[in-house]
Simulated assay, not measured.
Amino acid sequence: MDRSSLRPLVGISACLKENGRGGWHHTVGEKYVQAAVRAVGALPILIPAIGPEFDDEPGFIAALDRLLDGLDGVLLTGSPSNVEPHHYGKQSREGTLHDPARDATTLPLIRHTIDRGVPLFAICRGLQE
């Protein structure tokens, strides 16, 4: 089957959030999933925020590149959290929400998405990244 006749695959960045009971969840707002489906008929592929476990490992970067080879686009979502300021030489203000797992996943993902020429759409926090 010709790839042009298939639904596009769009990677969507997830956040890592505590569920209030001591557990953690990778989350993506339904509005972002529906945006990919409705805008381009995509099959959304959620990208979990697992970066800190692998961020300096060459295998992580190779896995990102393999993922990007199969995607038709990447959507970086909004979030209540902000990019940690140390990534751009600043300090965080007390009470600011951060998601270091997302930072460690999306920041290298963005660089590789651009390097590979994969379309990238960023919303809110995604634009900060």
Rank of each mutant, 00 (worst) to 15 (best):
L68Y: 06
D99K: 03
P85R: 06
A62F: 04
I114P: 00
F121Y: 15
L68D: 09
P80C: 06
A63H: 12
D65A: 08
A104R: 14
D69F: 09
T105P: 02
D56N: 10
R102S: 06
N82M: 13
R102W: 05
G51C: 06
T113K: 12
G117Y: 10
R93M: 13
F54W: 09
F121V: 15
G73L: 05
I114S: 00
D55W: 04
N82Y: 12
D99T: 04
A101F: 07
R66P: 00
G70A: 14
I123C: 10
T106W: 07
V40D: 00
T96I: 11
L97I: 14
L75F: 14
S81F: 13
L109I: 03
P48Q: 01
F121S: 14
L71P: 05
T106M: 12
I45D: 09
D72H: 07
T96P: 02
I45W: 07
G89A: 12
P58D: 11
D115Q: 12
F54Q: 04
L68I: 10
A104N: 10
P85F: 09
A104V: 03
A122W: 03
P48Y: 03
I110C: 11
A63D: 06
A49P: 01
A62W: 05
D103I: 04
D72V: 02
G73F: 08
A42F: 08
L46D: 13
A104Y: 03
D103L: 05
D65Y: 01
T105H: 03
I45S: 06
I45P: 04
D65K: 15
T113R: 12
H87D: 09
D65C: 13
